[in-house]
């Protein structure tokens, strides 16, 4: 390893000819087998080294990423109790059972609904926020840092605060609604209302974080583009649509994909928002998500087989959504570029 590292610098700059002053060159009759061997080594080095350098990540990923994925698949085709451990091989029975379970369908719909209610407004607001912060404001650092503040607060604290805001009977929001003559809303019992409540918690926590990432991307857009657009008579909105959006597309893809993954795995917020004893997401699982179902199967019903099958189904769902979003955002970005 250390040998090839040392020779790399020299190798890349002047690749084919052997250098006269090279300490290993064996004299004027330089076409001896040795240099050729060296050459081949160098070439190999140039080709392989980059992969070697990034290999630690992939090796680590293999251990902490792929292994659990494969192991979960192994567990999902067995009877497997939380405490008793592995039982019989049951093939796809666990999957069949999960797919036939009415809670699975319900909680999958909940998950997607909460995901849409959180990710869409979250990214729209984050883009707008980032655009506003991209201006020459007084005390820029202060503003930029303070939008990250909700992200620092632990979800547990957020759940306590939002829990008392969204109390069904004695909550602040329902009290305020009462003053303007609106009937109290069942934030913990009505399906859609509970999704809105949970999504608010998620948005509160993640909007600032995404805005900051998008802001970084916006700052990397060359200012000259805006100057020439301004000379051409483009207004702020036009500049934003035709320059900013297409230029931050790669970051946009990153933000959309990560929030898709995060949004479909939502767990802490709805679980902490739940006030029933079982904490399955409301009395009739009005806001129970797929990860909560995994927890219910694995840790409340103590059946890791069904839990693993559900986890795999969730993995598939996330892949589908991730790819769909990727294609969608690429198209949207491309349209902006053509304008």
């Amino acid at each position: 390893m250390s040998n090839s590292t040392a020779s790399r610098g020299g190798g890349t700059q002047t690749v084919p000819p052997t250098r006269e002053g090279s300490p290993t060159a064996s004299g004027p009759a330089g076409r001896a087998p040795r240099p050729e061997w060296r050459q081949r080594l160098t070439r190999l080095d140039v080709r392989l080294s980059p992969y070697l350098y990034i290999s630690p990540f992939f090796l680590l990923f293999l251990v902490v990423g792929m292994f659990p994925l494969a192991y979960t698949a192994w567990v999902s085709v067995h009877e497997w109790s939380l405490i008793g451990g592995k039982g019989e091989f049951v093939g796809l029975d666990n999957f069949r059972e999960v797919l036939g379970n009415p809670y699975f369908t319900k909680q999958l719909v909940n998950t997607i609904s909460i995901f849409l209610l959180s990710s869409v407004p979250q990214i729209v607001i984050a883009v707008v926020l980032a655009a506003l912060l991209d201006n020459q404001l007084r005390g820029r650092t202060f503003w930029r840092m303070s939008i990250l503040l909700p992200f620092v607060v632990s979800p547990v604290a957020i759940a306590i605060i939002f829990g008392s805001l969204y109390g069904d009977r004695y909550g602040l929001i329902n009290e305020l609604l009462g003053h303007v003559g609106i009937d109290p809303i069942g934030w913990h019992t009505e399906r859609f209302a509970s999704h809105v409540a949970v999504a608010t918690m998620v948005n509160w926590r993640w909007t600032g974080y995404n805005a900051l990432i998008l802001l970084a991307a916006m700052q990397a857009v060359p200012r000259e583009l805006y100057e020439s657009a301004a000379i051409d008579g483009a207004g702020r909105v036009r500049q934003f649509a035709s320059i900013t959006l297409p230029m931050i597309r790669p970051t946009m893809i990153f933000v959309v994909i990560t929030s898709t993954i995060g949004g479909l795995q939502i767990f802490a917020e709805p679980r902490l928002f739940d006030e029933t004893n079982a904490r399955n997401g409301g009395s009739d699982r009005q806001f129970g998500t797929i990860t909560m179902l995994i927890y219910d199967f694995g840790w409340q019903l103590r059946d890791l087989g069904r839990a693993s099958a559900t986890a795999w189904l969730l993995f598939v769902v996330i892949c589908v959504f991730g790819i769909a979003n990727f294609l969608l955002i690429r198209r949207v970005g491309a349209l902006g570029g053509e304008r």
Binding site: H188, T189, T276, N277, A278, N280, S283, Q286, Q300, L301
Partner: peptide
């Protein structure tokens, strides 16, 4: 204990009018 948890959830579904 597990059945009790399910029973309590069932009572609650009637309580909150979802069923």
């Amino acid at each position: 204990s597990d059945i009790l948890q399910a029973f309590q959830a069932a009572v609650l579904r009637v309580d909150d009018g979802s069923q």
